[in-house]
Amino acid sequence: MRRTALPERRPFGSGPAVSPFCLGTMRATGSAEQMAAVLRAAVAAGINHIETAPAYGTAEHFLGLALAELRQEQPERVADLVLTSKLLPGLGLAEGQAQLRQILQRLGIERLDNLAVHGLNRPEHLDWALRGAGAELLRWALDEGLVGQVGFSSHGENGLIEAALASGRFQFCSLHLHWFDQQRLPLAQAALKAGLGVLAISPADKGGRLYDPPATLLADCAPYVPLELAYRFLLDQGISCLSLGAAQASDLALAAALNPSGEAWLGPEHRLALETLQQQGLARLGAEACHQCQACLPCPMGVPIPALLRLRNLDVGHGMHAFAEERYNLIGRAGHWWEERNASACERCGDCLPRCPHQLPIPDLLADTHQRLASAPRRRLWG
């Protein structure tokens, strides 16, 4: 009789080991029944890491109800779960203490495995966490035994993330790590080498709406679906855990099916598919491909040139217009969670031109990016 392989578990800082995939609860907020169905599907798929936050509206409340229900039926499964929640930076000590106690109450637990600073995106956020009221709050939470370890999520610049990782304050981090945006991978690798846990933020959605790929991208990735290649790439890099924001049980089907049973996450056939994907995109972009070297920065007008041209790369190179347009139109409308200036801020000063090793006509490409992608404002999922 063939024995069923045990689900893989990966180190996550100084806390309990976690499954390669993490259930993010920000989308299963329609009802308690919806959350319960998603939680059951996650557990059935071998997922033991569950991430939530007060900022996700009803998520914690519904998750607490689902956990209580599951605890009655499968107490051993609930005992294996690793729970992560987050608090926004800037809270006073008393307010933060009250919010943490409310998190524990909503989830029906006495101790949270992982507590993260939710959106360590600006220098003042890091100062709050290291020297301000946040430092007191995190120290109190640990000393009181209310949390097992502390970490942060960040949508900020690499320099800020690097400073946070070097501070020694955090045991894990959640970062934007994607096949189509690899600029933070060196930071993730350094964090892993230092023994920190690393969670990839939404590789399915923020990584390119890969759950709904355009025909061009599907053809470029054949015989695999784009999301499988993206997942395999990150797990092969050693990333501790990939977050999945599931709204229904079927959203977890691919993660449940991806069980390598001992073989490498990224085999020769997958590497060939990724190489073909890259070459197809470069062929369509031709001499206008931005290689994301960052040499054009800083821009005197504060234009995030590589980030904007990356969206153009995806649109032209792989037909990912819906994703590129969605992300472009969040610029300036999402506070510190996203870029603040779009391509229309370029004044054609020309400072970037001699710095580009590929001699790209950057002002022209920025103007083309704006023409392609600018549209009506979009609403973020939360916040």
Rank of each mutant, 00 (worst) to 15 (best):
E8L: 15
R9Q: 13
F12T: 08
G13K: 06
L23N: 09
G24S: 01
T25L: 03
T25P: 00
A28C: 13
S31Y: 04
Q34K: 08
A37S: 14
A42K: 06
I50N: 01
E51A: 14
P54M: 06
A55R: 12
G57S: 06
E60A: 05
H61C: 10
F62K: 01
L63S: 00
L63A: 03
L67K: 08
A68G: 10
E69A: 15
L70W: 10
V78C: 05
A79W: 04
V82K: 07
L87C: 07
G96Q: 00
Q99Y: 09
L100M: 01
L104Y: 13
V117H: 09
G119I: 03
N121P: 09
P123T: 08
P123W: 13
G132V: 09
A133D: 15
A141R: 07
D143G: 08
G145M: 04
L146P: 12
L146V: 07
V147E: 08
G148C: 06
Q149K: 05
A166Q: 15
G168K: 07
S174I: 11
L175Q: 09
L175V: 12
D181N: 14
L185E: 00
P186H: 07
D205Q: 11
K206L: 11
K206E: 10
R209Y: 13
L210V: 11
Y211I: 03
A222G: 09
V225G: 10
V225Q: 12
L227G: 08
L227A: 04
L234C: 12
Q237T: 01
L242I: 02
A249I: 06
A249V: 08
A255P: 09
P260Q: 14
E263N: 00
W265V: 02
L266G: 05
P268I: 05
H270T: 03
R271F: 03
A273D: 02
L274W: 03
G281H: 02
L285D: 05
A287H: 05
A289H: 15
Q292L: 15
P298S: 07
C299K: 05
V303R: 06
A307M: 12
A307N: 11
A307L: 14
L314K: 12
H318T: 11
A322I: 02
A324R: 05
Y328H: 13
N329D: 05
I331P: 04
G332M: 10
A334M: 13
W337H: 10
A343W: 01
A343P: 13
S344F: 12
E347K: 15
C352I: 03
L353C: 02
C356I: 09
C356N: 11
P361L: 13
I362E: 02
P363S: 11
P363L: 12
D364E: 15
D364G: 14
L365F: 11
L373Q: 12
R380P: 10
W382A: 03
W382P: 00
